[in-house]
Amino acid sequence: MIRAILIDDEPLAIQVLERKLEETGEYEIVATFQSELEWKGSIDDLQYDVAFVDIQLVGSNGLNLVREMQATNKESLCIFVTAYEEYAVNAFEINVLDYLLKPVSTNRLKTTTERIHNELELRGLKAMEEKAHSIQINLFQEFSVYYEKKLVHWKTSKVKELFAYLLTYHNQYVERDMIIEALWPGEDYQKSKRHLHTCMYHLRKKLKSIGFDHAVTFLDKRYLLQIETSTDVDEWKKAMNDLHEQPDSVEPFNRVLTLYTGKYLERDDYEWAKERMQAHHFQMISVMVKMKNYYSDREQLEETSQCLNVLMKEDPYSEELVQEMMGILRRMGRRADAVSLYEAFAERLQTDLQLKPSARLRAFSKGI
């Protein structure tokens, strides 16, 4: 519903317009005024979306009144309603949304209503975008929330963990018992439920303080978190989706790697997050493999070796990676480094696993 106020010094004109607006089923008439003085007496209590104002008011000028309205309530829309066409140019110079001539026809009012809806929708989208930019949420490495560039502090560590958990299932309903099992595993159920209710109260209170009122809803023993913002993980996933199987440049790889600033919630050490942490990290390893293949296909040996170094740190017992790295080093004229790599690998296998390199790798090392 569009919340509207009407200002006209003719009571009959107010009644006619009020009836026409109500007949559309689109408006809620918040208040009506017959003078500028009446309107000024209610400024502090008024909440409305649009004001329908007569230009010629007894004792005042509608143009000046609208200027004052725009100064006191920048979010409201103004529409002139008058019997005189000659004011149209002046009206649009002060940025009113529309200009209606009396008597207002049903079809003309329909057009005005569509304009109001479109403008309110645009303003709503802009407000959501501004709100989204005012908050920054990081889930990689360590969970942190910044509002207007200031770190958000939580009532307790469990309130913080609860928000992180709900963000993991952002825009999805989560069973209450599933939350309890994740955050208070093995504890008494009734006691854990009370803990959840207390934490949820403080979480809602904190979210409201940073502009996200009614962000968490409860229905059929399930919770739903809905906030108009994105996390660093969301940005990374978007970059992952943009990464084609065979990109024609290295930039998509670099973007994915740059956005991945650390393992998912690693420093927070939440038990429920470890499976997701491993899944995300495995995806990053697969990206590094693709990047290595990209460089290898283009005979960019130095870049290929850099990727292999990263992969070998992730999997220090992989003979395939060691053999590929030895081959790259040989092609780069670094035979001594290839031999040293093999010897270090053989020692690591023996020390850590009491194993020896395979016959294939031993034969390959002799050919270096």
Rank of each mutant, 00 (worst) to 15 (best):
L162C: 03
F163P: 05
P316Q: 06
T231L: 02
T304Q: 13
K74A: 12
R334A: 00
E314Y: 15
N171L: 12
T229C: 11
D44Y: 05
Q56I: 00
E85T: 02
V53T: 08
M288L: 15
L203P: 08
F212H: 14
G59Y: 05
V250W: 07
R123S: 04
D44P: 01
C307L: 11
V89T: 01
M325C: 08
T106I: 14
R3Q: 05
T82F: 07
L17T: 02
E129W: 03
C199L: 00
C78N: 09
E271S: 10
Q278T: 12
K205I: 00
I94T: 00
L196E: 02
H117V: 01
I328G: 02
Q141Y: 10
K356I: 02
L353P: 03
Y84A: 12
E129M: 06
I179S: 01
V287K: 10
A239V: 04
I210P: 07
V310C: 06
D232H: 04
G124I: 01
K74Y: 04
I7E: 03
E142W: 02
M240C: 06
V66S: 04
L122A: 13
K208R: 15
E343A: 00
Y146C: 02
Y87E: 03
E75H: 14
S230H: 11
Q70I: 03
L361I: 08
N171R: 15
R334H: 15
T261C: 08
E130P: 01
R222G: 09
E245C: 01
L353C: 12
I368H: 08
E175K: 15
H197E: 09
Q136Y: 09
K126H: 12
I116R: 05
K20Q: 15
D220N: 14
Y260N: 12
S192H: 01
N64L: 10
K74T: 12
